[in-house]
Amino acid sequence: MSATRGPWRPAFITVGVALLLVTGCGKAEDQGVVAPTGGNDAVQATSSAPAGGSCTLQQFGGDKLDLKTAKVGFSQSEKEANPFRIAETRSIRDEAAKRGIANLQVTNADSKFSKQIADVEQMIDSGVQLLVVAPLNSDGWDPVFQKAAARKVPIITIDRKINAKHCTDYLTFIGSDFYEQGRRAAKQMATALENKGTVAILLGSPGNNVTTQRTAGFKDEIARSAPGITIDFEQTGNFSREEGQKVAEQLLQSKPSITGIYAENDEMALGAVTALKGAGKKGGDVKIVSIDGTRGAVQAIVDGWLHSVVESNPRFGPLAFETAQTFFTGGAVAENVIISDREYDRTNAKESLPVAY
């Protein structure tokens, strides 16, 4: 997202339990993101809609549609061993059922990009009229775009962006501001280390904007506000607990004096906890900050192993289908719908366990 934007006027739109703030393009600190309140199903978000940055059915092409009778496809990218993916798919299924959408087709790519492309192409061939996609990668979607465009099938991407043309290749992106997540994690790390020390980054999977932006946000904020902290190690753990553990084990052998670990998701953070325990470390010896907000990670804060967690909200169902409803009834849809994220630390982790996913 660009930090440059033209003038805008905020407009509040109430969407079920969702509160949307339509703003100009920019990072989350410019968008006025509000921390969500309420229980597991409460959703609040902001969306950016700069001049020329929205899409309508008239612009995109196609016909008005009743979602209740529509054929809808949802493509999940990764195995549902990850709590984020479990919560994400459940949110899509639950909201579809709540809205009376009887014809929902769900596929899972099992973390194989070629399978995800084949899954989505098959759903288009089967006649789906709307696609909700959680992309494994941000590039490589051209065959899908061509097939979807030929049949005027709008694509809503969730949690990861696709590098493509808005209102031509895809309809909208719904997800977190990943750059802002990285900045918030850096601020937490600076607090944990009192602005001095050496930090390792357990990188997410290469080839998607989540990893790129969470890394950039973290590094930029450390350089800006905590120059006494040195980033001394970076290696991908592919968002996996097992790989996160292996990388952390290598880290502790090669950099035994490391004082902080920034894990770009909770699974890698929990893998790092296992490595620390195996190395005879105690909770708090190495400060760990991560992103996701899974129940296991929030519990690890309570237990003293994690310092803090920035949530990445997986409950996209209400926003995805409300956005689709707006589009198919002739309304304008913003290019980016940015869902707001909580933050967990020692001050609220125990009481927040029921909210974590």
Rank of each mutant, 00 (worst) to 15 (best):
Q235S: 07
I86Y: 04
T230N: 00
G73D: 03
A45D: 06
T236L: 02
R85N: 15
S48R: 03
A96H: 08
A272W: 05
R93I: 13
T14E: 14
W141V: 10
K115R: 14
K255P: 00
P135H: 14
A148H: 08
P83D: 14
C55P: 02
F84P: 12
E29H: 14
Y170F: 14
A223F: 00
D41T: 10
Q105C: 00
G53M: 04
V247Q: 11
T172Q: 06
G237F: 08
K287C: 06
V273R: 03
Q76K: 04
K281P: 08
K152S: 14
E242T: 13
L353G: 07
I13V: 14
G283L: 06
Q299T: 04
D63P: 00
V247T: 12
F316K: 12
I231K: 00
F328T: 01
A118R: 15
P36H: 07
G52R: 04
S114K: 10
E78H: 13
G140F: 13
E343N: 11
S126T: 13
L19R: 14
Q253Y: 01
A324Y: 02
G182L: 03
Y357P: 07
L252Y: 01
A28W: 10
Y262H: 09
N108F: 02
Q299I: 00
A269P: 07
V22G: 08
S176C: 01
L251A: 09
R93V: 14
V337K: 04
E311K: 10
E234V: 13
G296Y: 11
D139T: 15
G271T: 11
E243H: 06
G293V: 02
E194C: 05
P314T: 03
F316R: 11
K165A: 15
P83W: 05
R183F: 00
M189P: 09
F74Q: 02
S126R: 13
I174E: 13
G207C: 11
K147V: 07
L19H: 12
L203Y: 07
I158A: 05
I222H: 00
V17Y: 00
G127C: 08
A164G: 08
G278F: 01
E351H: 09
T215Y: 05
G330N: 10
A109T: 04
I258H: 03
G24M: 06
I261Q: 01
T323W: 05
A356P: 07
D341P: 03
N40A: 13
I222N: 01
C167L: 06
D292V: 11
D232N: 02
L203M: 14
D142P: 03
T326V: 12
